[in-house]
Protein backbone atom coordinates (compact mmCIF):
# COMPACT_ATOMS: atom_id res chain seq x y z
CA UNK A 1 0.00 0.00 0.00
CA UNK A 2 1.07 3.56 -0.61
CA UNK A 3 0.75 6.02 2.22
CA UNK A 4 1.17 9.71 2.79
CA UNK A 5 2.07 10.73 6.33
CA UNK A 6 1.63 14.32 7.42
CA UNK A 7 4.14 15.11 10.16
CA UNK A 8 4.91 18.13 12.29
CA UNK A 9 8.07 19.57 13.75
CA UNK A 10 6.71 20.52 17.15
CA UNK A 11 8.27 23.35 19.12
CA UNK A 12 8.99 22.21 22.67
CA UNK A 13 10.99 23.69 25.54
CA UNK A 14 14.59 22.47 25.56
CA UNK A 15 15.37 24.05 28.88
CA UNK A 16 13.50 26.17 31.42
CA UNK A 17 11.03 27.89 29.08
CA UNK A 18 10.87 31.64 28.60
CA UNK A 19 8.20 33.57 26.73
CA UNK A 20 8.52 36.65 24.53
CA UNK A 21 6.07 39.59 24.39
CA UNK A 22 3.80 37.67 22.03
CA UNK A 23 3.55 34.76 24.45
CA UNK A 24 5.67 32.46 22.29
CA UNK A 25 8.60 30.32 23.46
CA UNK A 26 11.86 32.14 22.81
CA UNK A 27 14.24 30.61 20.27
CA UNK A 28 16.87 30.18 23.01
CA UNK A 29 14.62 28.05 25.20
CA UNK A 30 12.92 25.90 22.58
CA UNK A 31 13.62 23.63 19.66
CA UNK A 32 11.85 21.55 17.04
CA UNK A 33 11.50 17.79 17.22
CA UNK A 34 9.50 15.30 15.18
CA UNK A 35 6.14 14.98 16.96
CA UNK A 36 6.21 11.66 18.91
CA UNK A 37 2.85 10.34 17.65
CA UNK A 38 3.99 11.07 14.08
CA UNK A 39 6.72 8.44 14.53
CA UNK A 40 3.94 5.93 15.17
CA UNK A 41 2.12 7.16 12.06
CA UNK A 42 5.30 6.65 10.00
CA UNK A 43 5.79 3.19 11.51
CA UNK A 44 2.18 2.24 10.68
CA UNK A 45 2.76 3.38 7.08
CA UNK A 46 6.08 1.49 6.85
CA UNK A 47 4.38 -1.69 8.06
CA UNK A 48 1.75 -1.37 5.31
CA UNK A 49 4.47 -0.80 2.72
CA UNK A 50 6.84 -3.58 3.88
CA UNK A 51 7.05 -6.51 1.50
CA UNK A 52 4.48 -5.03 -0.87
CA UNK A 53 6.63 -2.54 -2.76
CA UNK A 54 4.61 0.14 -1.06
CA UNK A 55 5.81 3.68 -0.61
CA UNK A 56 5.76 6.04 2.35
CA UNK A 57 5.72 9.73 1.49
CA UNK A 58 6.10 12.18 4.38
CA UNK A 59 5.05 15.81 4.10
CA UNK A 60 5.21 18.70 6.53
CA UNK A 61 4.01 22.28 6.67
CA UNK A 62 5.43 24.84 9.05
CA UNK A 63 8.50 26.96 9.68
CA UNK A 64 11.45 26.02 7.46
CA UNK A 65 13.64 24.80 10.30
CA UNK A 66 10.99 22.73 12.10
CA UNK A 67 9.81 21.21 8.83
CA UNK A 68 13.28 20.17 7.71
CA UNK A 69 14.07 18.62 11.11
CA UNK A 70 10.85 16.61 11.05
CA UNK A 71 11.29 15.48 7.44
CA UNK A 72 14.92 14.37 7.87
CA UNK A 73 13.99 12.47 11.04
CA UNK A 74 11.23 10.74 9.05
CA UNK A 75 13.63 9.86 6.22
CA UNK A 76 15.99 8.33 8.79
CA UNK A 77 13.13 6.10 9.92
CA UNK A 78 12.70 4.81 6.38
CA UNK A 79 10.29 7.14 4.57
CA UNK A 80 10.60 6.84 0.79
CA UNK A 81 10.13 10.49 -0.07
CA UNK A 82 9.95 13.77 1.85
CA UNK A 83 8.05 16.87 0.80
CA UNK A 84 7.85 20.39 2.20
CA UNK A 85 4.46 22.03 1.81
CA UNK A 86 4.75 25.72 0.98
CA UNK A 87 1.84 28.11 1.12
CA UNK A 88 1.24 31.71 2.02
CA UNK A 89 -2.55 31.45 1.99
CA UNK A 90 -3.01 31.31 5.74
CA UNK A 91 -3.89 34.56 7.51
CA UNK A 92 -0.69 36.14 8.78
CA UNK A 93 -0.21 36.27 12.54
CA UNK A 94 -2.88 33.66 13.20
CA UNK A 95 -2.08 30.63 15.26
CA UNK A 96 -3.77 27.41 16.20
CA UNK A 97 -5.30 27.67 12.80
CA UNK A 98 -8.11 25.28 12.01
CA UNK A 99 -7.59 26.05 8.32
CA UNK A 100 -4.28 24.14 8.20
CA UNK A 101 -6.06 20.87 7.42
CA UNK A 102 -7.48 22.37 4.23
CA UNK A 103 -3.98 23.38 3.07
CA UNK A 104 -2.77 19.84 3.76
CA UNK A 105 -5.74 18.34 1.92
CA UNK A 106 -4.84 20.50 -1.07
CA UNK A 107 -1.21 19.34 -0.82
CA UNK A 108 -2.32 15.70 -0.64
CA UNK A 109 -4.34 16.14 -3.80
CA UNK A 110 -1.30 17.53 -5.60
CA UNK A 111 0.93 14.71 -4.35
CA UNK A 112 -1.14 12.01 -6.03
CA UNK A 113 -3.22 9.01 -5.01
CA UNK A 114 -2.63 7.23 -1.73
CA UNK A 115 -4.32 4.29 -0.06
CA UNK A 116 -3.99 5.85 3.38
CA UNK A 117 -3.20 9.34 4.64
CA UNK A 118 -1.80 9.01 8.16
CA UNK A 119 -1.27 11.54 10.94
CA UNK A 120 -0.37 11.27 14.61
CA UNK A 121 -3.40 11.64 16.90
CA UNK A 122 -2.23 14.97 18.23
CA UNK A 123 0.71 17.34 18.41
CA UNK A 124 2.78 17.39 21.57
CA UNK A 125 3.04 21.18 21.72
CA UNK A 126 -0.54 22.26 20.96
CA UNK A 127 -2.72 19.14 21.22
CA UNK A 128 -5.84 19.39 19.06
CA UNK A 129 -6.12 16.30 16.90
CA UNK A 130 -8.14 18.30 14.42
CA UNK A 131 -5.98 18.47 11.31
CA UNK A 132 -6.69 14.86 10.34
CA UNK A 133 -10.47 15.42 10.64
CA UNK A 134 -10.20 18.47 8.42
CA UNK A 135 -8.10 16.68 5.79
CA UNK A 136 -10.60 13.81 5.61
CA UNK A 137 -13.55 16.13 5.37
CA UNK A 138 -11.96 18.36 2.73
CA UNK A 139 -11.08 15.36 0.56
CA UNK A 140 -14.37 13.56 1.22
CA UNK A 141 -12.56 10.49 2.57
CA UNK A 142 -13.61 8.14 5.38
CA UNK A 143 -11.96 9.06 8.67
CA UNK A 144 -10.74 6.88 11.52
CA UNK A 145 -9.28 8.74 14.48
CA UNK A 146 -7.18 7.77 17.50
CA UNK A 147 -6.59 4.29 16.10
CA UNK A 148 -4.84 1.96 18.56
CA UNK A 149 -4.44 -1.06 16.29
CA UNK A 150 -4.43 -1.54 12.53
CA UNK A 151 -4.33 -5.02 11.00
CA UNK A 152 -4.15 -6.27 7.45
CA UNK A 153 -7.14 -8.54 6.95
CA UNK A 154 -6.93 -10.05 3.47
CA UNK A 155 -7.06 -7.05 1.15
CA UNK A 156 -8.73 -4.94 3.81
CA UNK A 157 -7.57 -3.16 6.94
CA UNK A 158 -9.29 -3.53 10.27
CA UNK A 159 -8.88 -1.10 13.13
CA UNK A 160 -9.39 -0.80 16.87
CA UNK A 161 -9.98 2.46 18.75
CA UNK A 162 -9.95 2.39 22.52
CA UNK A 163 -12.56 4.32 24.44
CA UNK A 164 -12.67 4.80 28.18
CA UNK A 165 -14.18 1.41 28.97
CA UNK A 166 -14.42 -0.40 25.68
CA UNK A 167 -13.26 -0.58 22.11
CA UNK A 168 -14.59 0.30 18.69
CA UNK A 169 -13.70 -2.09 15.90
CA UNK A 170 -14.40 -1.96 12.21
CA UNK A 171 -13.00 -2.17 8.71
CA UNK A 172 -11.24 0.65 6.89
CA UNK A 173 -12.39 1.32 3.35
CA UNK A 174 -9.40 2.79 1.53
CA UNK A 175 -8.58 5.42 0.55
CA UNK A 176 -8.97 6.79 4.08
CA UNK A 177 -7.49 9.19 6.58
CA UNK A 178 -6.26 7.55 9.79
CA UNK A 179 -4.86 9.20 12.90
CA UNK A 180 -2.91 6.88 15.20
CA UNK A 181 -2.08 6.94 18.90
CA UNK A 182 1.31 6.32 20.47
CA UNK A 183 0.08 2.86 21.54
CA UNK A 184 -0.44 1.51 18.02
CA UNK A 185 3.12 0.26 17.57
CA UNK A 186 6.72 0.64 18.61
CA UNK A 187 8.45 2.88 16.09
CA UNK A 188 11.70 1.49 14.69
CA UNK A 189 14.91 3.32 15.53
CA UNK A 190 17.03 5.02 12.90
CA UNK A 191 20.46 3.50 12.31
CA UNK A 192 23.66 5.46 11.80
CA UNK A 193 23.50 4.56 8.12
CA UNK A 194 19.89 5.71 7.62
CA UNK A 195 20.64 8.92 9.47
CA UNK A 196 23.54 9.67 7.13
CA UNK A 197 21.40 8.93 4.07
CA UNK A 198 18.61 11.12 5.46
CA UNK A 199 21.03 13.97 6.02
CA UNK A 200 21.91 14.11 2.33
CA UNK A 201 18.54 13.17 0.87
CA UNK A 202 16.75 15.62 -1.36
CA UNK A 203 13.60 17.18 0.03
CA UNK A 204 10.96 17.95 -2.58
CA UNK A 205 8.47 20.80 -2.37
CA UNK A 206 4.85 21.32 -3.25
CA UNK A 207 3.21 24.74 -3.28
CA UNK A 208 -0.41 25.34 -2.39
CA UNK A 209 -1.39 28.65 -3.94
CA UNK A 210 -5.12 28.17 -4.40
CA UNK A 211 -7.89 26.27 -2.67
CA UNK A 212 -9.92 23.85 -4.77
CA UNK A 213 -10.92 21.15 -2.26
CA UNK A 214 -13.50 23.36 -0.55
CA UNK A 215 -15.56 26.31 -1.68
CA UNK A 216 -13.58 29.56 -1.91
CA UNK A 217 -16.07 31.58 0.16
CA UNK A 218 -16.10 28.93 2.91
CA UNK A 219 -12.30 28.96 2.89
CA UNK A 220 -12.18 32.75 3.18
CA UNK A 221 -14.56 32.66 6.13
CA UNK A 222 -12.62 29.92 7.95
CA UNK A 223 -9.26 31.57 7.30
CA UNK A 224 -10.41 35.02 8.32
CA UNK A 225 -11.81 33.71 11.62
CA UNK A 226 -8.51 32.06 12.60
CA UNK A 227 -7.64 32.83 16.21
CA UNK A 228 -4.43 34.16 17.69
CA UNK A 229 -2.81 32.31 20.53
CA UNK A 230 -0.26 32.82 23.25
CA UNK A 231 1.32 30.66 25.91
CA UNK A 232 1.35 31.44 29.60
CA UNK A 233 2.88 29.83 32.65
CA UNK A 234 0.61 27.91 34.97
CA UNK A 235 0.31 29.90 38.19
CA UNK A 236 2.09 27.96 40.92
CA UNK A 237 -0.20 26.39 43.45
CA UNK A 238 1.24 25.22 46.69
CA UNK A 239 0.17 21.73 47.52
CA UNK A 240 -2.33 22.02 50.34
CA UNK A 241 -3.27 18.60 51.61
CA UNK A 242 -6.80 18.03 52.84
CA UNK A 243 -6.50 15.66 55.82
CA UNK A 244 -9.38 14.21 57.80
CA UNK A 245 -9.03 12.55 61.19
CA UNK A 246 -11.14 9.45 61.68
CA UNK A 247 -10.89 9.56 65.48
CA UNK A 248 -12.43 13.05 65.66
CA UNK A 249 -14.84 12.82 62.77
CA UNK A 250 -16.92 9.75 62.03
CA UNK A 251 -17.91 11.33 58.69
CA UNK A 252 -14.25 11.51 57.58
CA UNK A 253 -14.53 8.86 54.86
CA UNK A 254 -17.81 10.27 53.67
CA UNK A 255 -16.32 13.76 53.38
CA UNK A 256 -13.25 12.45 51.56
CA UNK A 257 -15.37 10.62 48.98
CA UNK A 258 -17.54 13.72 48.46
CA UNK A 259 -14.45 15.84 47.98
CA UNK A 260 -12.88 13.35 45.54
CA UNK A 261 -16.07 13.12 43.50
CA UNK A 262 -16.55 16.90 43.40
CA UNK A 263 -12.99 17.35 42.20
CA UNK A 264 -13.54 14.74 39.50
CA UNK A 265 -10.79 12.54 40.97
CA UNK A 266 -12.93 9.43 41.45
Amino acid sequence: MNSLVFIKGVIVPTTKPELDDQGQLTAETSGAILNPADKNAIEAALQLADGQNGTVTVASYGSADATEKALRAALALGATKAVTVNSDLLKAGADNNSAVGVILAEAAKKLGDFDVIFTGDQALDMPQGYVSASIANSLGLPYFDDVNALNVDGDQLSYVTLWEKGELTGKVQTPAVISVTEDINKPRLPSFKTKMVAKRAEIEAVTVDSITVIDQAVWDQLNSEAPTSRLAFIPEQKKQAVIYKLADDDQAVNKLVDQLQTQGIL
Binding site: D125, E225, P227, S229, R230, G264
Partner: peptide, 29 residues
Protein backbone atom coordinates in the same frame (compact mmCIF):
# COMPACT_ATOMS: atom_id res chain seq x y z
CA UNK B 1 -3.18 23.18 28.51
CA UNK B 2 -0.25 22.96 26.11
CA UNK B 3 3.35 21.75 25.98
CA UNK B 4 2.56 18.46 27.70
CA UNK B 5 0.36 20.22 30.26
CA UNK B 6 3.30 22.24 31.57
CA UNK B 7 1.93 25.53 30.20
CA UNK B 8 -1.34 27.22 29.36
CA UNK B 9 -2.40 28.30 25.89
CA UNK B 10 -4.82 31.16 25.47
CA UNK B 11 -6.60 31.15 22.13
CA UNK B 12 -8.36 34.37 21.17
CA UNK B 13 -11.28 34.39 18.73
CA UNK B 14 -13.31 37.33 17.52
CA UNK B 15 -16.60 37.59 19.43
CA UNK B 16 -18.57 36.84 16.26
CA UNK B 17 -16.45 33.83 15.28
CA UNK B 18 -17.84 30.31 15.19
CA UNK B 19 -16.03 27.56 16.99
CA UNK B 20 -16.55 24.02 18.19
CA UNK B 21 -14.92 23.12 21.50
CA UNK B 22 -14.56 20.20 23.86
CA UNK B 23 -14.48 21.13 27.53
CA UNK B 24 -12.08 19.87 30.17
CA UNK B 25 -14.43 19.36 33.08
CA UNK B 26 -11.92 18.36 35.72
CA UNK B 27 -13.35 19.45 39.05
CA UNK B 28 -16.78 20.30 37.60
CA UNK B 29 -19.62 18.32 39.17
Amino acid sequence: KAEEATMLQQVTLASDANAVMTCDMTGVN
